[in-house]
Amino acid sequence: MEALLAIAIGTLTACGVFLLLRARTFAVVLGLTLLSYAVNLFLFASGRLVTGAPPLIRDGAFYTDPLPQALVLTAIVIGFGMTAYLVMLALRALAESGDDHVDAGGGK
């Protein structure tokens, strides 16, 4: 399971970084989204991978670390809000200049 998760995180990060370096805002937004998926998975794994255990602490019971789940939830909410704003900003730049190039001087 660890290997699978590691490969998934690695693939997502690589694709995210590749897209992030593109010159069009749409690809950049997709890249950031993929990157944030990778980060969320990574955060989730920071509490160690445990299957079939509840995130509830009881003495002697088998449980999974609840804190990374709370962290991931926070990160997802923040990342989602940021992405929404970025999409809006990209649309505005497109509407104002008729061009979705990310660079201030380029594209024209």
């Binding site: 992030l20 805002t25 950049v28 950031l32 990157l35 944030s36 990778a38 980060v39 969320n40 990574f42 955060l43 794994a45 920071s46 509490g47 160690r48 804190l67 990374p68 962290l71 990160a75 923040i78 990342g79 940021m82 992405t83 704003y85 970025l86 900003l89 990209a90 505005r92 730049a93 104002e96 200049s97 990310v102 201030a104």
Partner: peptide
């Protein structure tokens, strides 16, 4: 708008890095 776009993208990438650092620290 242009300046804002670059600023937002850069800081979002920075936030991703921040979260990776925190995940490793917690791990």
């Amino acid at each position: 708008t242009r300046a804002g776009l670059a600023y937002v993208v850069l800081n979002l990438a920075g936030s991703a890095l921040f979260l990776i650092a925190l995940g490793m620290l917690y791990g």
